[in-house]
Design a protein around this nucleic acid. Sequence first.
RNA 1: GUGGAUAUAGCGCAGUUGGUUAGCGUGCCAGGUUGUGGCCCUGGAGGCCGUGGGUUCGAGUCCCACUAUUCACCCCA
Length: 412
Amino acid sequence: MINIPKGTRDMLPDEAYKWHYIEDIARKTAALYGFKEIRTPMFEHTELFLRGVGETTDIVNKEMYTFLDKGGRSITLRPEGTAGVARCFVENGLQQNPMPMKAYYIASVFRYEKPQNGRLREHHQFGVECYGSEAPEADVEVISLAHDFLRRAGLDFAELNINSIGCPECRARYNAALKEYIGQNLHAMCAQCRERFDKNPLRILDCKEEECKKITANAPKITEFLCEDCKAHFDSVRAGLDELGVPYKVNPSIVRGLDYYTRTVFEFVSTDIGAQGTVCGGGRYDRLVEQVGGKPTPAVGFGLGLERLLLVLENTGRLAASESSVEFYVAPMGDAAKKVARQIVAAKRRSGVSAETDIVGRSLKAQMKYADRIRAKYVVVVGDDEIARDEAEIKDMQSGETSRVALSSLLK
RNA sequence: GUGGAUAUAGCGCAGUUGGUUAGCGUGCCAGGUUGUGGCCCUGGAGGCCGUGGGUUCGAGUCCCACUAUUCACCCCA
């Protein structure tokens, strides 16, 4: 017996409708905001993620599916969607198109993690990318799209946390101030934070260790160190969200785990699926395109975990049961009737109406049972009697009532 | 990577202090006279009791290891 690989999931036919449901809402919402679909490869050169996502991140350090292909190239299954889009943008010269470029994707991403509730090795994201505008309106557009999508999907209670981590200049000043504040207390912090102290001090704020949290509780806040431009930008983003009536909370401790973020960062968090509550994470990444080899191009976007979204919707009873069923099940009796049944089914399908007939060789009773199980709306019974009289019996499976119609009317 | 829990039929579960051919519910297939579903009844298929060792006359049951699953930490969607 060969089992499914750790941290992956099968999508069974009976639950396909759930995926169609949220993917449909994603596509429609994206379209309403003028975002078009973009598709990039499932794997890229490893170098892209090293440069794009950042070598100090957990994702790059320990979570990538990396292997050598037969040509000896280092290949990585995409651990997130943004870097690939940035590469695609640069490689295809999309900066020549009218700006902004607004694109979305629905794609699977891969991370070598230890699976738990809401965390998989392959999961699916609905992501959005907006390139070519550094205006706060772009941030607002992207955040409100995420908010709108979640609301349409039925998740109207996820909390939006936002923060600004400034531009590289503000961050340098802030990092210096943070290091000075921590100063002598560094030895009391966890091993990981001591490492962060040198590599990426900002992430110390993200630490969940009690001791570390105590030390950083009264640390200076990055928002106090923002330069004039970054401060104005953050203020405008908030004003824009207020204007649209999108509720949010400013949370100075969210800093995100990917190195490419600048200025605005945000998360939508749900409390209904246990520890892995972040359903959507995103922000601005003005330096990414440059890091990947393109001309400086400001950008904002988000990634939204579809498995987690479904988990929340299911846990809170917001996902309706499937309503799909066939319109007609045609139950033949005898060889002559089988041929007529095939003709009826073909005619129905030709005119866009779903129809099925027996392909197993079951008795009439068994066919009725099957039709019931698949929730067929109508069953058409055809036997020698019906053929002789040129009519068929139609049974409404809900009411149980039967009526007779001319065979010719079913064959149109 | 670190901790805890679990592993018996497709799914959900029983299985006594170790003792014959391992059960129940549900689902699946077929029947309950001549051509009709849902309820009821009957029958059938389906299990190397996660894998490998050990203890024992005897292991689904006890011990060890491994593997897988799962929850939490870390991190993230």
